[in-house]
Design a binder for these strands. Structure first.
Lengths: 240, 240
DNA sequence: TAGTGGTCTAGACCACGAA
DNA sequence: TCGTGGTCTAGACCACTAA
């Protein structure tokens, strides 16, 4: 699609599309959009051009066609499965996410981390180890790694709470993640960090994540969750 | 989209689309597809019709247009996050999924199941309890519930291995799921069913799922996984 | 220069839904 | 019956790429 040209020459189907979009913004689902033939006479364009404009909005999920009836504002789709960060997952539960950094430094990537990040063994990576809290309670011990070349200077200032927020600012918000999830018993050092005081063996969740933005691996992490304080909620699928 | 008509009258753009799809199936990424004008003369249709056919394949992610160069087989996109059934998850690991039904009957929905299925308490539901195996090994104990009105007659014949396959046949393939995941220790009866012989407390994964097709809840389930034999692999996000 | 996809026209007939 | 979206035609000019 000649997207780059849009800002230079106003293509007709773009003009129609944006006009309809502005009409439809904020309208209640079910509100009828102008009919195709209406737009044809209004803009003096061919019907195929109008259809091209409306097709784009239908694909976007803004409009819905109903053969024989018309075109209408679609009811908002179920949001697509998002890759949520810990901070966001906690916020969704109405709590504040906090963390204590145990370690934040650059390292030479070992073979495992390098393979997961799709970089060369020995390349410089940032290793960030944190205890993470939700609403004041310790729930998670996390080791995160990312390519130092992807997020340079992160370690120079004060560390952020949310890595994903920083990634988002740089246009690298993860759009895809591959998670592996297992149950296990907490190991002694994990019990300490997670403030587990049971005398019994305590089950924990282990979550390995590879987070990608497009084809770029932006983070790999391993996390241990106190399952008594944190249930993993995941949404999968395409919403339709 | 007049999808229902496709099988009745062979729409021209569908004919062209499926012809191109068959040419392109299995071709290496970068392989050129026939040019639009080639298809025009080959099928004796208008170019807009050919474009409609190719547009569909581009949206599907099968083809890629390169202005001035041509249309090519796209490198496979990261598949969108799918709601995978147990059967599919096991198949992806290269194993055969099997199961033993412990219970399969209709019940009156209790308040919890009714709320999860978005039906009335007391409505008839099917309760299906199974031990599930991957490559011959017992990995999961699952209780599934679904609205008897959504899948009538399921209990009348031999039970299928994959519920999702049955749902797919009826156009009810889940497109969305909400999973809650916790770690826990196996309870005595679960140890029996899962053939756990450790003398130690054994961690297991508990997964609750609500699976939807559009806005219809088609299944709710609770499953207990032997985490030593089965790691949950999940893909999240939109792929791009 | 020749071929490609991107855009656009000015019509047409059809099936379907609502009145 | 009339208006809707779905399909389809037979052309056209453009910008871009590659030879």
């Amino acid at each position: 699609m000649g997207q780059a040209i849009e800002t230079v020459r106003e293509l007709k189907h773009v003009v129609v599309r944006e006009h309809v979009r502005s009409l439809v913004q904020g309208a209640a689902p079910g509100t009828p959009a102008p009919s195709e033939r209406e737009l044809v006479s209004q803009f003096g364009v061919a019907r195929m051009t109008v259809r091209q404009a409306l097709d784009a909005l239908v694909v976007e999920g803004l409009l819905e066609r109903m053969p024989g009836r018309g075109t209408f504002v679609a009811r908002p789709r179920r949001s697509r499965a998002q890759v949520a960060s810990f901070t966001e997952a906690v916020a969704r539960r109405g709590h504040l996410a906090e963390s204590t950094t145990l370690l934040a430094r650059t390292e030479q990537a070992g073979p495992g981390v390098a393979r997961a990040l799709e970089i060369e063994s020995g390349d410089t990576v940032v290793h960030w180890k944190r205890i993470r809290r939700a609403g004041g309670e310790t729930v998670c011990l996390q080791d995160a790694y990312f390519d130092a070349a992807v997020l340079p200077h992160l370690l120079e200032g004060p560390l952020p709470e949310s890595l994903y927020a920083v990634l988002a600012e740089r246009g690298l918000r993860p759009t895809w993640s591959e998670d592996s999830i297992q149950a296990d018993l907490a190991k002694p050092d994990e019990r300490d960090h997670l403030e587990i005081t049971d005398s019994e063996p305590t089950p924990v969740l282990r979550v390995s994540r590879r987070a990608l933005c497009g084809d770029l691996v932006v983070e790999v992490s391993r996390a241990v969750y106190r399952t008594d304080r944190f249930t993993l909620h995941l949404q999968l699928g395409t919403g339709r």
